[in-house]
Simulated assay, not measured.
Amino acid sequence: MRDDLLTIGRFARLCRLSVKRLRHYDEVGLLAPLRVDARSGYRYYAPEQARDALTVALLRDAGLPLAAIRDALAAGPDARARLLREERERLAARMRRDAERWEMVDRLAREGLDGYEVSVGPEPGLRLGVVRSAGGGGAVGDRVGGCVVRLLAALDGAGAGWEPPLWGLYPLDPDEGMEVAVGAGSPSVEVAGLERVAVPAGRAAVTTHVGPYGQLPLAYHALFGEVYARGLRPRGPVREGYVVGPGAAAPEGWVTRLVVAVEEGGK
């Protein structure tokens, strides 16, 4: 047995960590003691383990998951740097989502739940050329953006005229794996890669959202709340008309028209 091993208490003081935290690192497989006494169960650590203990604590405080920390400790310098860059990007994405949530809650605090006017009345039909993204990986917003790119590339490549705005078509029951479609009104010629879709005219509930797409749930809350308050039943697809969008204004000036067909008898 090495004579320089430290008890868990002394090692905790050396690393400025709690004994409870070191025990947890051992239990989840992040940092095992060099020796555990078979009779007493006492844990003993080597002084050179202090760097790993401090690294684990630092990365946990930074919000990295246990699996990522375990991989980082086992990796060489180059692989560790790559892993940390990947975690940095995931953290940045989470911060963006949190910022969007903050903005939505801030808007609710300022405007309340009744900041949208919802009308119910006749809505003209649409004849669209669309591209679809049928579920699979990726966030819905990213897949919609991909559809827009494919749609505009197909229209430009065919020299086809079309009527703005672009329209997004979504099922009534949204989830990350749902099919989404983006279309342009009445392309003047047949365009390879575009599906012709006719959305019939009829009675619909309509509201307009002004602001970033991340705040669209506020508009949907108002839209469907009014539908059910009137005893109506919604029918898909839900339509989003991108009246003003990226490239034409800053996010706070984006204008999106929400339309859902309705019929009597909702329960």
Rank of each mutant, 00 (worst) to 15 (best):
L6E: 13
I8R: 06
G9N: 14
G9R: 11
L14M: 15
L17H: 13
E27A: 15
L31E: 10
A32I: 04
A32G: 03
P33M: 08
R35N: 10
R35Y: 15
S40M: 14
G41P: 07
Y45R: 09
Q49W: 05
Q49I: 11
Q49K: 13
A62K: 03
L66I: 15
R70M: 06
P77I: 09
D78W: 12
L84V: 11
L84Y: 07
E87C: 12
A92M: 09
A92V: 10
R94M: 15
R101Y: 04
R101A: 11
A109L: 15
E111V: 13
D114G: 13
Y116A: 10
Y116Q: 14
P122Y: 12
P122G: 15
R127W: 14
L128H: 04
V130S: 00
R132F: 07
G138N: 14
A139V: 06
G141I: 09
V144G: 05
L151W: 03
G159E: 09
W162D: 00
E163K: 06
E163C: 08
P164F: 00
P164Q: 07
L166S: 00
G168E: 06
L169M: 12
P171E: 01
E179W: 08
E179K: 07
V180E: 00
G183S: 01
S186M: 06
P187Y: 02
E190L: 07
V191G: 05
A198S: 11
P200D: 14
G202Q: 11
A205P: 12
T208H: 03
Q215P: 06
P217G: 04
H221E: 15
H221T: 12
L223F: 05
L223G: 03
F224D: 00
V227E: 01
Y228Q: 15
A229P: 04
P234N: 06
V238E: 01
E240K: 00
V244A: 01
G245N: 03
G247T: 10
T256W: 00
V259H: 00
V259N: 00
V260L: 01
A261K: 08
E263F: 05
